[in-house]
Amino acid sequence: MTAPPAEAPATSGPADLGTPRPAERRRRTTIPTVAWWRLASPVLLVAAWELAARVGWLAPEKLPAPSTVLATGWRLASDGTLLTHLLDSLSRAGAGLLIGGGLALILGAVAGLLRLGDDLIDPPVQMARMLPHLGLVPLLIIWVGIGESLKISLVALGAFFPLYFNTYAGIRDIDERLVEAARTCGLGTVARLRHVVLPGALPALFLGLRLAIGAAWLSLVVGEQVNAQTGIGFLMMEAREFSQTDVVVLGLLVYALLGLLSDVAIRTLERRTLSWRRGLRAT
């Protein structure tokens, strides 16, 4: 007696093309969950902070409750004070980033692409990066005074070095065989820069930009505490004179939110620009 022939496995027809695989369905459903879980630890920290202030573990004059800080922020936002200082801080940060970032991109590209540029530009920049730029405040005061130029110069210095070194490293890390292959295919200098050098250096450029923005905000905190009349840093210094801890904490939170929003914006732009690049994902 012979066994019945085994049935052939069912083949997926055209109707199966739109059905997601189990792994794909699981990945689609877990991505929003993971995003929500990233908010869990900040929410818990704020809740613990509020609880500690409510039960008296934290003195109000040392660290007020988050609800008190939010009420102060609402009051300053309602009368326009917070917006005025915020716009001045944003204008200083934007000007410093434009100057320092633009100079870093130009010098980093010249040093990374040209041997002469590497010999002339990189050694002095390597020497200058060993100096803490915030320690140059006394010298900058002598050079540019204590006005707006000082604050913009500090932001520009803070943004310059991270972006320069990542631009330089991003260009130098490009596989030379790709450049030779492009040259063999008949691509000119401009075409090689556009189709090989720029895509290869973009990941490092975005990393440098994120670091530069973070350094720019840190530099602005210091700059706005030197003879400023407006800005979030000035608001904090003025509050310190009157022991308004809630305003000081509010200023710190504003700086933190500005840095976070800047980083999120750069990450979003990076994902869209480098959609072709697949990196390691956390599991």
Rank of each mutant, 00 (worst) to 15 (best):
A156H: 00
G259M: 08
T230R: 13
V247G: 09
P203H: 10
R177E: 15
A93T: 11
T72N: 11
G200N: 11
A256C: 12
D118Y: 14
V264Y: 04
G73M: 02
F242D: 12
G102N: 01
R172D: 09
A52C: 12
R92N: 05
V43W: 05
G102T: 01
A52V: 07
A156S: 10
G117P: 09
I213F: 14
Y168P: 01
L76Y: 08
V110H: 05
R281M: 10
V196N: 11
W57C: 05
T184C: 08
L70G: 09
F165K: 08
A228P: 11
L82N: 04
A77V: 00
L17R: 15
A48I: 13
V69A: 09
D88G: 11
A77K: 01
G56E: 03
R92T: 09
E241W: 08
E270Q: 15
A239H: 05
L258R: 03
L260S: 08
R278A: 14
L209H: 07
T268V: 14
W57M: 12
A159M: 03
A282F: 07
V69Y: 02
P66N: 13
L105W: 00
M236N: 06
E224Q: 13
V43Y: 02
F161Y: 11
G100L: 00
R92K: 13
W143T: 15
R129K: 14
P9A: 15
V264N: 01
V248W: 00
A282W: 06
L260Q: 10
G94R: 03
L98H: 00
L250V: 09
P9K: 13
S41R: 07
F165H: 05
V222E: 03
G102I: 02
A212D: 10
R54A: 15
Y168E: 04
L150Y: 04
A59H: 06
G186E: 01
A228L: 12
A282T: 13
R27Q: 14
R172E: 12
L209G: 15
C185R: 00
I174K: 06
D246V: 08
L90C: 13
E270K: 10
L253A: 15
Q126T: 13
I213Y: 05
I146N: 07
A159G: 06
E148I: 04
S12Q: 12
A6S: 15
P14V: 12
T72Y: 01
V249Q: 02
F234N: 15
